[in-house]
Amino acid sequence: MNERTLSYALLVPAFVIVIATTIYPLAYSFVTSFREWDLTKQLRPSGFVGLQNYAHAATESGFQNSLWVTAIFVVTSVILTVVLAMSLALLLRRTGRLHTFTRIILILPFAMSPALIGVSYRFMFNPEFGVLAKGLGAVFPALEGTPWLANPDLAMAILVITDVWHWAPYMTFMCLGGLASVPRETEEAARIDGASNLRIVFGIILPQMKGVLLVTAVLKTIFALKMFDQVVTLTGGGPGTSTETMAFFIFNVGFEWFDMGYASALAWILTIITMVISAWYVRMLLSERKMATA
């Protein structure tokens, strides 16, 4: 066997695994999205129904609601995460014991399982014995006894907070990496030229961080669109359907209502939304790179 053949042969196991675990399920779900498949009635998909599942999605209120919930969640969590990550990176880029220590402990939230974060926050916001609920009540007496997770707006806010808390550290490290590539001299030149600290951040540093911030935003958007674990363990989609994200709703359609055809169609809608948003980001990123290297 020559070297070229061997190198292809060595790639075969990886290809097989990717095909079996990703390509095949994707293709299968795509085909299923055009068929009717009620899991309570049959083990295999039945006849083709054309675009019926997709048409149903366009009018069904549950999905419309999840689309709206996801949009609110994605926009708020992406903006808050990126802003917080960039701010933390600016604070932590200096060297020193305190900065190094803070960087190390920053890893902890990211190291925690999202499901566990959901459970922890549910306990912490329990109005009877939750440490955060009690603490907030002690500082702001008006908040004493607030049923945090029983209020739709507050539940969404807490869901966003847990997600930002989970992802901001990782994104901070990405921003720190980006900041390291911004030449210190441009900042010093601006200081000498007469720029204030705020102007240096917004006029000199951030424009040079555009590429990194775009990558951070695209990754966070993809993760936010897939939001599932914390919804399950923190709010259960409630109160009512106020925190029912798309991923959570699709799970319910497939594994609570057992309507696999409709669930597949919804999953593909989510995939297409993710792809369109990612493509838009990548396009912006490429035009940014083009401008930087032109």
């Binding site: 030449p183 001299e185 441009t186 010093e188 030149a189 601006a190 000498i192 000199i204 424009p207 040079q208 555009k210 401008m291 930087a292």
Partner: peptide, 13 residues
């Protein structure tokens, strides 16, 4: 004062 840096320190954007 005005300063000229080794790596120019120009604003790339």
């Amino acid at each position: 004062i005005a300063m000229v840096f080794q790596n120019y320190g120009l604003y790339p954007h």
